[in-house]
Design a protein around this nucleic acid. Structure first.
Length: 430
RNA sequence: GUGGCCAUGGUGAAGCGGUUAACACAUACGACUGUGACUCGUACAUACGAGGGUUCAAAUCCCUCUGGCCACCCCA
């Protein structure tokens, strides 16, 4: 194969795009119901934006960014995540002046130079949502409820919600120090990676899969026990709001985030069905980010969902949009009548297909079958002469005689109870 | 960045040193000259990821490269 796509960059083929539409439309529906508006920002930003927001010492910034110098000698980067760009736009256009409370969502490709594997690609897609301007834990709960609602909307109950609090710049340093001294006391029991983490990101050690480390960290101090009063109250309030709305969740005090800007509430929707890629969606509060990027001191909270991972969870369900009618024709003269009928039906919003190449009736019928058309009709000399035709329901072969007109077929469609004339983005379970 | 496994047609795959690269599905056309799904027939890889090497002979053995998958790291 001479020319192929870039490693880790995937084509979404026609057979798959229906599933993507299903996910994207469900997200738009749920988010807009919750008062969010879409914001579209560039896929590239100045490199500095990501260094300042995500954190210079994170893996993303250190080794995973697609950064390069453009012809004007500017260092630019393909966005590795969405929040930074959205917040840059929020500040740049002074959206906070209009209304400090903004509810925004976005979707699109993100880029990270990682080794591809199941559920992880170099170009991947995220759908994310952000709320700015509200300190109240009520919005934390609303965001979590919306996330939960989204997964319910697409018919998945598998990913489950885990929450944690990371504290704030007030209380986190003390926790970090307590954890470090705990870990330092047992460096001997830790794996090589965790010894390295001790200096880079000690919290990660709590997340390690090596049995020895799991054992060694059993009694490790928990973030939740080191929260300052403000953070502790906040977290309790989030939990009580979730309880109030009966939103299922569990607390995972060992949950770690990869981005530096998170404060207080953090969360993930996790699954065990995707191999080692357990996080399907993740996010948290970022109260310092906007100010850190040069904006006013306005808090924020948001999340991003991995579209590929959701698509994987949806599995083999079929999301095709199927024709309502396939028109087969007998001879060249009849194709005029067929083409005109198709045109009329399309204008009326009926999904119609017809033979384009004057093939044999047999092969036209085979095509009608292959396209999974609801109905088929054969237009030959008799039909043109009589102005009426036999519409055959493909599922059971039952034939209905009706006028060869738009109204005629619409009547047939209406009769076929339970067969929706509009299949667009309706999942057809197999 | 590290490790393991793998690489034959549109797809799933047989083949493991020797003349025409099984089989199945998919696809196209036909048997049935106005009706699909079943059946049957015909067609469909000078080609076995790429490049070298060993051999009289390689899809089959060796090396390099490239790609894929999975895992680590990290993350959506």
């Amino acid at each position: 194969m001479a020319l192929t796509a870039i490693k880790g960059f995937n084509d979404i083929l026609p057979g798959e795009s229906g599933r993507w539409h299903y996910i994207e439309e469900a997200a738009r529906r749920v988010f807009e119901l919750n008062g969010f508006s879409e914001i579209r920002v560039p896929v590239m930003e100045k490199t500095e934006l990501f260094c300042r927001s995500i954190g210079d010492a994170t893996d993303i910034v250190e080794k995973e960014m697609y950064s390069f110098t453009d012809k004007g000698d500017n260092s630019i980067t393909l966005r590795p995540e969405g929040t930074a760009g959205v917040m840059r736009a929020y500040i740049e256009h002074k959206l906070h002046a209009l209304d400090p409370v903004a509810k925004l969502y976005y979707l699109g490709p993100m880029f990270r130079y990682e080794r591809p594997q199941k559920g992880r690609y170099r170009q991947f897609h995220q759908i994310g949502a952000e709320i700015t301007g509200v300190h109240d834990p009520l919005v934390d709960a609303q965001v979590l409820n919306m996330l939960t609602a989204f997964f319910r909307e697409i018919g998945l109950d598998e990913p489950s919600l885990q929450i944690n609090s990371l504290g704030c710049p007030e209380c986190r340093p003390a926790y970090r120090a307590a954890l470090c001294s705990f870990l330092e006391a047992r460096t001997g029991d830790l794996c090589e990676d965790c010894r390295r983490r001790l200096s880079t990101n000690p919290l990660r050690a709590l997340d390690c899969k090596v049995p020895g480390c799991i054992q060694a960290t059993v009694g490790a101090p928990s973030v939740l026990e080191h929260l300052c009063t403000g953070c502790d109250d906040h977290f309790s309030a989030v939990r009580s709001y979730l309880d109030l709305t009966e939103t299922p969740y569990s607390i995972n005090s060992r949950m770690v985030r990869g981005l530096d800007y998170y404060t207080r509430t953090t969360f993930e929707m996790v699954t065990t069905l995707l191999g080692s890629q357990s996080a399907v969606a993740a996010g948290g509060r970022y109260d310092g980010l906007i100010q850190q990027l040069g904006g006013p001191a306005i808090p924020g909270i948001g999340f991003a969902m991995g579209v590929e991972r959701i698509a994987l969870l949806l599995g083999q369900r079929e999301f095709a949009s199927l024709p309502d009618l396939f028109i087969a024709t007998m001879g060249a003269g009849e194709r005029n009548a067929a083409f005109k009928l198709m045109h009329g039906l399309l204008k009326a919003g009926v999904r119609v297909e017809m033979d384009y190449e004057g093939k044999s009736l047999k092969s036209q019928m085979r095509r009608a079958d292959k396209l999974k058309a609801c109905f088929s009709v054969v237009i030959g000399g008799n039909e043109v002469a009589s102005g009426s035709a036999a519409f055959k329901r493909m599922s059971d072969g039952i034939v209905t005689e009706a006028p060869l007109t738009v109204a005629g077929f619409e009547a047939v469609l209406a009769q076929g109870r339970g067969i929706s004339p509009h299949h667009l983005s309706t999942p057809v379970s197999e």
